[in-house]
Simulated assay, not measured.
Amino acid sequence: MNRNIWNLYKNSERGQNAIEIFNFNEHDDLFDKTSKIYDFCSEFMGDISEKEDFINTLFSVYENVSVSQLSLKENFACNILNNFDNEIEEFYKSERYVTCFSRNGDLLSQWRAYANQGKGVAIGFDLLNFEDSIHQHLKGSVVEYNEDVQKKSIEEVIKTIIEYYEYHRENIDWSDFGYEKLVRYSIIDFLHRIVSTYKSKGFSEEQEFRFEYFIDGNINKKDSNEINFRSTETMIIPYIILETEYNNYKKRFQNEDLETEPTFLNKKLPIKEIIIGPSLDFDLTKSSIEEILLQHDYKNVEIKKSAIPYRI
Rank of each mutant, 00 (worst) to 15 (best):
S68E: 14
F91S: 08
D47E: 14
Y246I: 01
L8I: 08
V301P: 14
Y239S: 01
L280T: 03
S94L: 08
S196N: 08
L269D: 02
Y62W: 13
Q254I: 13
K201M: 12
L280Q: 05
F211R: 00
D126Q: 14
Y167T: 10
F177V: 09
E50T: 02
N248Q: 05
T260G: 03
M45P: 01
S42C: 12
N56S: 12
E290T: 04
G178H: 11
S71F: 05
L107H: 07
D189G: 08
I241E: 10
L280N: 04
L108A: 02
N25R: 15
F54K: 02
S175R: 11
A115Y: 02
I227L: 14
I308G: 10
E20N: 12
T285F: 04
G140S: 13
I292M: 11
V98P: 00
G202W: 01
H168D: 07
E166P: 02
S186H: 04
P262M: 07
A77N: 02
T232E: 03
E63R: 15
N17T: 04
G202Y: 11
N75H: 10
L284D: 14
I303D: 06
V149I: 11
N225H: 08
S141Q: 13
K250C: 09
K268P: 00
Y62M: 08
G118F: 03
G120Q: 05
K152W: 05
N4Y: 11
E155K: 10
T263S: 13
L242S: 06
V98L: 03
R112I: 06
V195W: 00
K272D: 03
I123G: 06
K222R: 15
N79F: 09
D106T: 10
A113H: 07
E131V: 07
N23R: 15
H168G: 07
V98N: 01
S68C: 06
E90H: 09
K93H: 06
R103K: 09
N79Q: 14
S141I: 05
P278Q: 02
G15S: 10
C100V: 00
I187F: 12
N266E: 10
D281K: 11
D283M: 07
V65A: 06
Q136F: 11
S153C: 09
C100I: 00
P270H: 02
M1N: 09
F22W: 15
F211W: 06
T234S: 07
F84T: 07
L58E: 04
L293I: 11
V157K: 12
V61T: 10
N171E: 07
P309H: 13
D47F: 04
E205N: 13
Y198S: 03
K151H: 06
I274P: 02
F91I: 07
K152P: 01
S133K: 02
E206I: 04
G202S: 13
Y145R: 08
N247E: 05
K222Y: 04
R112E: 05
S60M: 11
E13D: 12
I154Y: 02
F209A: 02
L70K: 07
I158P: 09
F24V: 14
D189L: 10
A113V: 00
K51Y: 00
K151R: 15
K267P: 11
